[in-house]
Design a protein around this nucleic acid. Structure first.
Lengths: 141, 141
DNA sequence: GATATTTTGTTGACAATGTCAACTTAATTA
DNA sequence: TAATTAAGTTGACATTGTCAACAAAATATC
């Protein structure tokens, strides 16, 4: 390996993770793309969520999120309800179908997570996370 | 952190790495996008390289690579020369300008790599790579 | 309280990236 | 020799990401 092995390893894991999630989720059969997955997860895990919350959290363009939300509403995964505190924005919440998808996503994420952790002890995982945290900070500084 | 912390950590590092490389390279000023960087690096590190080698290595669509190569030739970064062993394909090689870009990319990669490794001992880095390798294999199996 | 500024969300236009299928030419297999 | 496979090119199109203009509402400033 060359001196870029860390980044290569990281990219390789990220790529494999994406592929594994995609196939484990049967994402294409469900009509889910990666942005759908991120949005549904986020909405699922948050109390009251607006489009702008998603924009902030995912760091995406608001135009992109507006179109994504529109699409997910027409898919009957989400509904909008008035935000009594701010008439410009609206709360996004999952329909039953959206809930089911979000639950499936969460379930698949844990399965993939378990798969990733195979053959590793708790100490190794802890050490990995610790070092990864340092690397992450190194890059951000 | 939740039970998806490994994947979150990985994605966070990958994202930071991309941003850091991009700004360290001054990629936009040079007219480089991420596929350019990957292709130039690959050609730089390989003996004799054809479009199909890039397709295989990067796992991309051959149409995408054909257009990328065409663009890089028109940028005067690459040239094509006949492959005496197979008249269907042609060898891609870097022009002087392409060499300079590839060298700059390699140099920037080492700098970012050094930055990533700050505050970590050789043992920690070795351990990180070892565990990352296991995770990577877990996902592939 | 009226006015100016900022924020949320929508839309149009478009750039960048990725994908699929048809096709040509050359190499390989049967 | 004929059929199949492989390398590369091109057209068409889907997906994703970005920028700017805009309306409506909230907030700040005077």
């Amino acid at each position: 390996m060359d001196n870029h092995s860390i980044s290569n390893t990281i990219f390789s894991i990220a790529h494999s993770y994406r592929l594994t999630m995609r196939s484990a989720l049967k994402a294409s059969e469900l009509g889910l793309n990666s942005m759908h997955v991120k949005c549904l997860s986020y909405i699922h895990n948050s109390e009251a969520c607006t489009a702008n919350d998603i924009v902030q959290f995912l760091g995406r363009d608001k135009a992109q999120i507006a179109r994504l939300v529109k699409e997910m509403i027409s898919n009957n995964w989400l509904t909008k309800t008035a935000n009594p505190e701010d008439k410009r924005s609206q709360f996004l919440s999952l329909t039953e179908e959206g809930q089911a998808l979000a639950a499936l996503i969460a379930d698949t994420q844990s399965k993939v997570s378990i798969k990733m952790k195979q053959n590793l002890s708790d100490e190794e995982l802890k050490e990995f996370s610790r070092i990864a945290g340092i690397i992450s900070n190194n890059l951000k500084s």
